[in-house]
Amino acid sequence: MNKTKGQIVAEISEAIIKFEKEYMGRGPLETKTYILGDMVLVRLKGVLTQAEHQLVSTGEETKGRDLIKQVRIALLEKGRPLLEAVIVSITGCKVKSLHTDISTVTGERIILFTLEKDPTFEQTS
């Protein structure tokens, strides 16, 4: 049985929240997933820790921001095989690439997966 787009989106959001909690140590305050053709875009809000907020609120904001971005990207790259496996199992599509960035101003993180093809889902009536 095929899943609806809504079911796929919800499963991806739940899986990303679980990954953030278990792998990164803290879950986001809010997660929203979008499927746009062969792309899966996940927007996470409130991902910065208290320590990270402190790092960017000191006098050397640029240095703190760069450190946070470097660490977060390195951690995500280490967990990339786990994330890609989750996306494949939910969408049935192989991941072609993964892109990410984090804003130390808003505490928002974006994860973009490009897939080898558009995922198929059951049409809702």
Results as ranks from 00 to 15, higher is better:
Ile110Met: 01
Glu108Cys: 03
Leu41Pro: 05
Phe113Met: 02
Phe113Ile: 01
His53Ser: 13
Gly37Leu: 05
Ile73Thr: 14
Ile17Asp: 10
Lys96Asp: 13
Ile68Gly: 02
Gln70Cys: 11
Gln7Lys: 10
Gly25Asp: 10
Ala85Pro: 14
Gly59Glu: 11
Gln50Pro: 10
Thr91Asp: 01
Thr114Trp: 01
Glu84Ala: 11
Val71Met: 06
Phe113Thr: 00
Gln7Ser: 11
Ala10His: 06
Ile87Asp: 00
Phe19Lys: 05
Arg80Thr: 10
Glu116Met: 12
Met1Asp: 13
Pro81Gly: 12
Ala10Lys: 11
Glu77Lys: 15
Leu115Gln: 03
Glu108Ala: 01
Leu48Phe: 03
Gly92Lys: 03
Ile110Asn: 00
Glu61Gly: 01
Ser97Leu: 08
Gly37Thr: 08
Ile90Phe: 04
Tyr23Cys: 13
Arg72Pro: 06
Gln7Asn: 07
Pro81Trp: 12
Leu112Glu: 02
Ile110Leu: 02
Ile111Ser: 00
Leu48Lys: 04
Gln7Glu: 14
Cys93Arg: 03
Asp38Ser: 15
Lys96Glu: 14
Glu11Cys: 04
Ala85Thr: 15
Asp118Ile: 06
Gly59Phe: 11
Glu11Thr: 04
Gly46Glu: 09
Ala51Tyr: 10
Ser97Arg: 04
Glu60Pro: 00
Ile17Phe: 03
Val95Glu: 02
Arg72His: 09
Lys69Pro: 08
Gln7Cys: 09
Leu48Asn: 03
Ile87Cys: 03
Glu30Thr: 08
Phe121Thr: 06
Thr120Tyr: 10
Val47Ala: 03
Ser97Gln: 05
Ser57Ile: 07
Thr4Tyr: 01
Val95Lys: 09
Glu14Tyr: 06
Asp66Gly: 04
Phe19Val: 02
Lys32Met: 15
Asp101Glu: 06
Thr33Pro: 06
Ile68Arg: 01
Glu60Met: 08
Gly25Ile: 07
Thr49Glu: 06
Glu122Val: 13
Val71Lys: 09
Val71His: 04
Glu122Gly: 13
Ile8Leu: 09
Val47Gln: 01
Glu77Tyr: 11
Glu61Thr: 10
Glu116Cys: 14
Leu83Gln: 04
Gln50Tyr: 14
Gly79Val: 08
Val88Cys: 05
Leu29Gln: 15
Glu14Arg: 13
Ser89Phe: 05
Lys69Thr: 15
Met39Lys: 14
Gln7Gly: 08
Glu122Phe: 10
Asp118Cys: 07
Thr62Gly: 01
Lys21Cys: 07
Ile111Arg: 00
Gln54Tyr: 12
Ile102Gly: 03
Ala74Thr: 15
Ser89Trp: 05
Asn2His: 09
Lys3Ala: 09
Val9Phe: 00
Ser97Cys: 08
Val9Trp: 00
Ala51Glu: 10
His53Pro: 05
Arg80Trp: 12
Val56Asn: 05
Asp118Pro: 06
Glu108Asp: 02
Thr4Lys: 01
Lys63Phe: 10
